[in-house]
Write a protein that binds this DNA or RNA. Structure first.
Length: 431
RNA sequence: GGAGGGGUUCCCGAGUGGCCAAAGGGAUCAGACUGUAAAUCUGACGCGAAAGCUUCGGUGGUUCGAAUCCACCCCCCUCCA
């Protein structure tokens, strides 16, 4: 069963490195095992960068193992230096504490906390770190670490070598804290496997060593590849920034659109990374797309699957409703109720009264949040990229927003669907 | 504590008295081409509709004029103690 799991993970390209490679398959096959992955509170929500490990926990759980999701109330106070170019800004304890609560809720949606012996648990390393005093820590834990070995770790090398940056003792100690987590989870839960992104390799092997030294147990580690894009740009960013898992920070619609925009060069790999679709099914999709003309089906499947995983069926339907209405359908065919629904579904929208209209279209669209600056609107107007209910505006229209949003042009007397470029759409509800 | 190096617009990185809202690259946005893809080409890229306004770690100063010079301060890096 678990041999099969590993085989599947390999087929998906989800295995980057394994510590204890020879023994791990048999260890997993023998019985239901406990594994963990940590998530540090660096914001009030996780983003899609954490999706691969989150889903990985679930993959193991589906294969009959027990996942522990660790929310790093302690490690989050320190800051992981792994492959970071710069020292991080520390947040205050109460801020971090608030984030821990948010992440707990978020993380628990990805694993089954009610699955009998395999029930997932959410743990917080602050629970066993808070009471630790410095002397005990230095004597009992620190003594097992060789600074000589620590500075050899690739993850901190650039901070040690690089001109113009450095590393504080605080961040340097991060590895020890995380290692201690593994040892502690091994002691408390019999946890024997830690998974994480490939940037966590140094921290994971540190934990493996410490667990052997402190508990005399053999434990394992597995890392997943960093998600990259074929064009070399950073994965997980859009114009408006990070793609968050929290629906309040990134709407299901925006989330869905993000995945829909995946390039052909990445989409099949992402299907393997981010969905539970069988690898054979994905191969079949790829084959069909290659054989067919025009637009591939893969992006749509990816968007649908991932949005459902993160936002559930309701979130997915909302996202699909908006997408269909705006990109596949005819705006004029939408009823007033449809348009109101789009607002509820999370289509960016604003309600304002005719009297509140600003002096220029650039102001109107900028204030609505469609772009960062009026310059971009100007640029778009000049190239005919702005439209109101399907009718293009020009630069000459800039001075007369009221005329652009004239009642005669409204849908159902009050709605204006304004597009800027191909992808940015905003609904104005004018009363 | 001492010596040296450094802090420039989202990032990297030029600029060392006017020609600087500040080279170049990246990222980003828009257009063309397409498939809400990629690549490519074009344009934008501090704010502002415009007039104009505000930037080059901070505060003062020199000067007709400063990112550039001076003073003090803050932060980072390297080496020494």
């Amino acid at each position: 069963m678990s041999t099969e799991l590993l085989k599947d993970l390999r087929a998906r390209g989800l295995v980057f490195q394994i510590a204890g490679e020879e023994a791990l398959p048999a260890w997993l096959d023998a019985e239901s095992r406990t594994l963990y992955c940590g998530f540090d509170p660096t914001a009030d929500s996780l983003h899609i960068g954490s999706l691969v490990p989150l889903l990985m926990l679930r993959r193991f759980q589906l294969a009959g193992h027990r996942p522990l999701a660790l929310v790093g109330g302690a490690t989050g106070m320190i800051g992981d230096p792994s492959f970071k170019a710069q020292e991080r800004q520390l947040n205050t304890p109460d801020v971090i504490d608030g984030w821990v609560g948010r992440l707990r809720d978020q993380v628990s949606r990805f694993v089954d906390v009610d699955a009998g012996a395999c029930s997932a648990e959410i743990v917080n390393n602050l629970d066993w770190t808070r009471g630790l005093d410095v002397l005990t820590f230095l004597r009992d834990v620190g003594k097992h670490f060789s600074v000589n070995a620590m500075i050899q770790k690739e993850s901190v090398k650039q901070r040690l070598d690089r001109e113009g940056s450095g590393i504080s003792y605080t961040e340097f100690s991060y590895m020890i804290l995380q290692s201690y987590d593994f040892a502690e989870l091994n002691r408390r839960y019999g946890c024997g496997l830690q998974i994480g992104g490939s940037d966590q390799w140094g921290n994971i092997t540190g934990g493996i060593d410490l667990t052997r030294r402190m508990n005399g147990s053999t434990v394992y580690g597995l890392t997943m590849p960093l998600v990259t894009k074929a064009d070399g740009t950073k994965f997980g960013k859009t114009e408006s920034g990070t793609v968050w898992l929290d629906a309040a920070k990134t709407s299901p619609y925006a989330f869905y659109q993000f995945w829909l925009g995946t390039s052909d060069a990445d989409v099949y790999r992402f299907l393997r990374y981010f969905t539970f679709l069988d690898v054979d099914v994905i191969a079949q999709i790829e084959k069909e797309d290659a054989a067919g003309q025009g637009r591939p089906q893969a992006q749509g499947i990816l968007a649908r699957e991932v949005t459902r995983l993160v936002h559930g069926n309701d979130g997915l339907y909302a996202a699909e409703r908006i997408t269909r209405s705006l990109f596949d359908g005819d705006l004029k065919a939408l009823s007033a109720a449809d348009l109101s629904q789009l607002k509820l579904d999370g289509l960016p929208s604003s309600s304002l009264s005719r009297a509140d209209l600003p002096e220029t279209v650039t102001q109107l669209l900028t204030e609505a949040g469609m772009t960062r600056s009026g310059k971009q609107v100007k640029d778009a107007l000049l190239s005919g990229a702005v439209s109101v209910n399907g009718e293009a505006l020009g630069w000459a229209d800039n001075g007369s927003p009221a005329a652009c949003l004239a009642s005669e042009r409204a849908l159902h007397g009050r709605f204006f669907v304004v597009r800027l470029g191909k992808k940015k759409v905003h609904l104005f509800d004018l009363t």
